[in-house]
Write a protein that binds this DNA or RNA. Sequence first.
DNA 1: CGATATCTTGAGGAATCTCAATACTAGTGG
DNA 2: CCACTAGTATTGAGATTCCTCAAGATATCG
Lengths: 246, 246
Amino acid sequence: MPRYNIVPNAVPRVDREGGVSPCAACPIREIAVCGALQSDELGALAEILDGIAVEAGSAIFYEGDPARHVFNVTTGAVRLSRLLPDGRRQITGFLFPGDFLGLAYDETYTYTAEPIERSALCRFPRASFETLLDGHPRMERRLLGLASNELATAQDQMVLLGRKTAREKLASFLITLSRRAERRGQGANPVHVPMTRTDIADYLGLTIETVSRTFTALRKAGLIEQLPDHAVRLTDSEDLLAIAGD
Amino acid sequence: MPRYNIVPNAVPRVDREGGVSPCAACPIREIAVCGALQSDELGALAEILDGIAVEAGSAIFYEGDPARHVFNVTTGAVRLSRLLPDGRRQITGFLFPGDFLGLAYDETYTYTAEPIERSALCRFPRASFETLLDGHPRMERRLLGLASNELATAQDQMVLLGRKTAREKLASFLITLSRRAERRGQGANPVHVPMTRTDIADYLGLTIETVSRTFTALRKAGLIEQLPDHAVRLTDSEDLLAIAGD
DNA sequence: CGATATCTTGAGGAATCTCAATACTAGTGG
DNA sequence: CCACTAGTATTGAGATTCCTCAAGATATCG
């Protein structure tokens, strides 16, 4: 049973025959791995790609599934998580448009990937993707850089989880979200926080109650404002940054 | 001021002229990135490599240093760590013979690398190493696999830091150490734990007192024995594994 | 507009931390 | 070879942060 639907038109396929790749018009290409390719190479990408659309509540893949594809998020937001046998969950990351997903040394995924809102992704069969890499060393190098980057981000998160207080964790989280939105060219200050308290808690190694109380504390301290529609204004980014600790 | 001494003979250089690479005799080559090269390609590796020796108490590089080299641990053990402005420390990993070190997307290292005991490493100038990768795609692919692996390990550690109890953290730690020793072909059961309580605490997101108390608790529960010389016998690996949670 | 999920707030409890004293270990010099 | 020292580890008692359990408030969606 498929975990999502393949939606051919999630990515425009026009002109594939004519030699113009849908990727050429992709708004996030430059910030994604695909940006490593020249325009005349994009056809090769489009040839192995399927556009998929996923709704919140479904899954892209589960921990333990055979790792048959790699993905690129084009719209929406995705959470990556792992479970302990008794159900405790740790979210290891949130992905946004442009982010790459599915690198696996193993033959199976080591984490679950689920959209937290309606999202679209480009899906590449892993084998074809690897063949593509063989012919495009620039792209492979980019992927390596990307992995290094993710590794550095993972280390940030370890510092957060192992050594920061609840207040520091939430401050870091909000600032990081804001920075990432900025890099994608979206509004960085009232920052959009699409995830639930449960997701934030499982990401920061806290309970939902502590997350809620800490939001209240930051608000009462005049550091943030909670706006409608899951938006948060960073009233005092400087202080917030000082609290976040790096 | 150099942070360590270059010790030409830390890696045997005999026969470089004669075309036989010191790497050919390297006992950890197969488990390291270098294993991706054929024997007739090893000369290229040796040409750009320096052997370095470092003592506990020194550093290989610090967070923020320009990332001019990449390394491979050949003997000993190395800790990677990051600091918060107020001095709180998080150790993000321990490296053992065969482990690769120094991947950096940035121009500077994002973490500090220090030996926790007398160690030897192969050091490669980053630029030369990247040039080498250009000519040896198999090695680059291996490096990518390695990075994926590290990413999965980092996720394990996030689960540990965010969602495990002190008892579970220590059990996981001991089992992981044991497994890694085994993969290197060393004794897996009385497992050698070369790091101090402080290092273990900073790795597991605990205090040294809690680490110490938890060691005592595991010992009293009959799960481990503490032997002389920083060795720990896993008396009941099965139960320990169940406690570790994955 | 009701139903359901999500979020907030409160009170009490538990795990871990802090501070402090003592014990152990390894290395050094007599 | 032993005594001394400095670093490292253990143990205890009390403090603190965060968690658990529970109730009420708010938001979301059909």
